[in-house]
């Protein structure tokens, strides 16, 4: 059995808005092992993003326990959480979230800046390597506004990879992209997963979820169903079946 990266037990998250209490997550149990490529699915408002934010140590649960790579995160200080995010987690957001007017290379270098053990030379080399891995070796000095949406998302993926995290968390990473580009991004994630990277991927598109190895369904803040994907499709193969765009 592979090592358990994420272990969640009886996790709850309530939001208080004025008088109303929203139960975004109600008693969630979840276990994710090394090398898993998990799709978190569900309708809008079912608690997927809330789950992912807690997994990413960006938000704290109301109750319940969360072990990340063997560490209980509930008792960690703000600084320790920042360090954990820096070393163990990589994020990919729906809206890319790149620093404006900052080159692709510098965007990718960002997590390494907050890691004092990485020297400037190594930082540059690792950022170049990460950009190479997402196929943007020839775009390193481009600014975000000089890149297409798909390319920007690749930069964001390179950024999430660069510190070699134990898990990559992606929230609707293909949500802003067209079908072809979505497949390209999914192909990239599949490659990363094939190399052993653990990925948690929030989506509400079953088609996209079909490229992962395991699907977890949320409804009203609870997991209603989870199953392994039998014969996950290859995004790269699917790309070849797409009709060539002609104008």
């Amino acid at each position: 059995m592979k090592k358990e990266i994420i272990s969640i037990h009886q996790l709850r998250k309530d939001f208080h808005v004025g008088e109303v209490t929203v139960h975004a997550l109600r008693s969630v149990d979840l276990s994710i092992r090394e090398g898993d490529f998990v799709a978190i699915m569900g309708t809008s408002g079912s608690g997927k993003s809330t789950m992912l934010n807690i997994l990413g140590c960006l938000d704290k649960p109301t109750s319940g326990s969360y072990l990340l790579d063997g560490t209980d995160v509930s008792n960690l200080s703000k600084n320790e959480l920042a360090r954990l995010r820096n070393l163990k987690l990589g994020f990919v957001f729906q809206s890319y979230n790149l620093l404006p007017r900052t080159s692709a290379l510098e965007n990718v270098e960002l997590p390494l800046f907050y890691n004092n053990s990485v020297k400037p030379r190594e930082r540059r080399e690792r950022a170049m390597a990460a950009l190479g891995a997402v196929g943007l070796a020839d775009r390193v000095h481009h600014m975000p506004n000089q890149l297409s949406g798909g390319q920007q998302q690749r930069v964001a993926i390179a950024r999430s990879l660069v510190n070699d995290p134990v898990v990559i968390l992606a929230d609707e990473a293909t949500g802003n992209l067209d079908t072809r580009t979505s497949y390209e991004i999914m192909a990239l994630f599949q490659d990363l997963n094939a190399k052993g990277k653990t990925i948690v991927f929030v989506t509400h598109e079953p088609e996209i979820a079909g490229f992962t190895t395991r699907n977890v369904h949320f409804r009203d803040g609870s997991i209603v169903k989870q199953h392994a994907v039998e014969n996950p499709g290859s995004a790269r193969e699917m790309l070849t079946t797409l009709p060539v765009e002609t104008d």
């Binding site: 600084n79 360090r83 960002l110």
Partner: peptide, 16 residues
Amino acid sequence: TREIGLRMSTGGRGRD
């Protein structure tokens, strides 16, 4: 603010 959020998500501490 979003830039600050991003920096924090990639490991920036309050002190940074």
